[in-house]
Design a protein around this nucleic acid. Structure first.
Lengths: 151, 151
DNA sequence: TATTGTTATACTCTATAACTATA
DNA sequence: TATAGTTATAGAGTATAACAATA
């Protein structure tokens, strides 16, 4: 996109930002419905297919390690996840989902799909495919952000 | 999109969610760089071209009125916005940007455009136009959420 | 009576700084 | 020395409940 397209570019940016707020509002509502903050919900999503160290969780979320301690404390107290010593590094602590956490994570992922589907149901299959391709192309070239693989 | 396209639909949802997190991370970073929470940043964006009542601000953001009181308190103390009695309703309080708040809001909007532009610069003009159209079409049919017109 | 806004309260989220234990 | 994690602390964000003022 060239510099002369500034009006068109601004329009794209507006659409992207509005779409992002709309999507985040849906994720926020789903989280709140289950007494989770969006961050807690993201933790569940991240741990759905991974067992990670506290420090890795901090990296995924782009948050300070002390924040992660509190976050994991509360989720552990609720029985959603567990800590365990890392076998390879005596300083490190692994985090992973409990069965209850795993169940909630799966349910949450399904809810996200269900909640966003209506918004997309107006698009034709061809348009949906086109949109997917365009978004994926942008994401592939974007500098990977802390949270780019949550969900 | 038909029910048989569930894999394709899930892929679109994943792309949309990832893109949303990426966009929000950018907005969060810009906010933090100016000692604003994302919510404060949104307040500035909302008030950029509007003078609203406290209750309307609550509606825009989807937050409780008591939350708005605190939010406005802090921003007012920082000199970014001001309260005034609503001339038409003795119970209501109007909120609007101070000159400093207005300046920061304009600067912030420009920063958002600048920060998101690189991510989009890899797309051709035709692709950008196509993406804009697809997003706008979805947003037009989406039930308008509390925050859909921030920014 | 209903609505608008504020205040008190409580909890979560977040970062900084100081600390312990391990590498 | 550097890294991993926890704890103490402080401030912001958020909602609920109770309240005063106005419609």
């Amino acid at each position: 996109m060239t510099v002369t397209d500034s009006a068109a570019q601004q329009r794209l940016i507006d659409a992207l930002v509005t779409m992002s707020f709309t999507t985040m509002a849906v994720l926020n509502r789903i989280s709140a419905d289950h007494d989770l903050s969006l961050t807690q919900f993201r933790v569940l999503a991240i741990l759905r297919d991974r067992r990670v160290k506290m420090s890795e969780l901090a990296d995924y979320l782009g948050l300070d390690k002390s924040t992660i301690s509190g976050l994991v404390d509360r989720a552990e107290k609720r029985g959603l996840l567990r800590r365990a010593a890392n076998p390879a590094d005596g300083r490190a602590v692994d985090v992973f989902l409990s069965p209850a956490g795993s169940e909630l994570a799966e349910y949450g992922a399904a809810l996200v799909a269900q909640s966003l589907a209506p918004m997309l149901s107006g698009s034709s299959t061809a348009d949906a495919r086109r949109l997917t391709t365009l978004l994926e192309r942008i994401l592939a070239s974007a500098p990977s952000l802390p949270d780019s693989d949550a969900q």
